[in-house]
Design a protein around this nucleic acid. Structure first.
Length: 221
DNA sequence: GACCAGGCACATC
DNA sequence: GATGTGCATGGT
């Protein structure tokens, strides 16, 4: 695994799909909420939930802090796991108010490593959610790993099938320039490609990475 | 109906 | 540390 390989994968994906314009949210706070709602859930469903929150003028820290849990659950219902995600949204909001006066801008002065630790301590915020918040909402140079990243890299024989999250993150961060725009686009492209070609069981006909000999592997399919 | 979706916490071994 | 399970709606 080399820098060149990662760069070539990026270029192939960019050529195939173009700019993904991530994150699909208008404000840092909306991105945070979307990051929690999209856990193991399609973005189309999350978008419905976010639309409900916007319509109710509740897509603010204060709004979500004050709203009754059962009401919130009703609004985010289309996103699935709505009782669970209600607790997760509330735990994030409580953390934000308890420690940062309910304002995302107060996170700006906190070092990235410390912020990542604090986010991971919130119940309902795991590594992908924390890193998505750091990169897409807060503009920190953290590479976001997800199931597609692992599946695509594994099926192309580029990592061990049992590689864990931190190994994957380190692979990308160690072999790519520390470039927020690149991290942003690369993760988005991996999600796009995975969504289209790299399902858990289905074969991957037409996968753009097939055209790259170094990433071809019999285990791809 | 089967399969899948931009995970996570928790129980159990 | 590894593995299994519950959580849930909605699109293909």
């Amino acid at each position: 695994m080399t820098r060149e390989t990662l760069t070539q994968i990026y270029e192939l994906l960019y050529e195939a799909f173009g700019s993904q314009h991530w994150w699909p949210g208008e404000t840092p706070f909306e991105i945070v909420i979307g990051a929690i709602l999209t856990q193991n859930t399609s973005w189309a469903n999350v978008n419905k939930a976010i639309t409900h929150l916007k319509s109710a003028s509740l897509l603010t820290p204060e709004g979500l802090y004050r709203i009754d849990a059962s009401e919130l659950a009703g609004l985010i219902r289309p996103a699935g796991y709505y009782n669970l995600k209600t607790k997760r949204l509330k735990s994030f909001i409580d953390w934000l108010f308890d420690n940062y006066d309910g304002q995302l801008t107060n996170l700006e002065s906190v070092a990235t490593d410390r912020l990542r630790s604090e986010l991971l301590a919130i119940k309902g915020v795991g590594r992908e959610t924390a890193d998505s918040i750091l990169l897409y909402a807060l503009g920190r140079p953290v590479f976001v790993v997800d199931t597609y990243t692992a599946r695509i890299m594994s099926r192309h024989g580029l990592i061990e099938p049992d590689a864990d999250y931190e190994q994957l993150r380190d692979l990308f961060e160690s072999n790519l320039p520390e470039d927020i725009k690149l991290y942003n686009e690369f993760h988005a492209l991996l999600v796009r490609a995975g969504n289209k070609f790299c399902k858990p069981k289905a074969r991957c006909p037409g996968c753009p990475l097939e055209t790259h000999p170094h990433t071809l592997d019999v285990e791809h399919f």
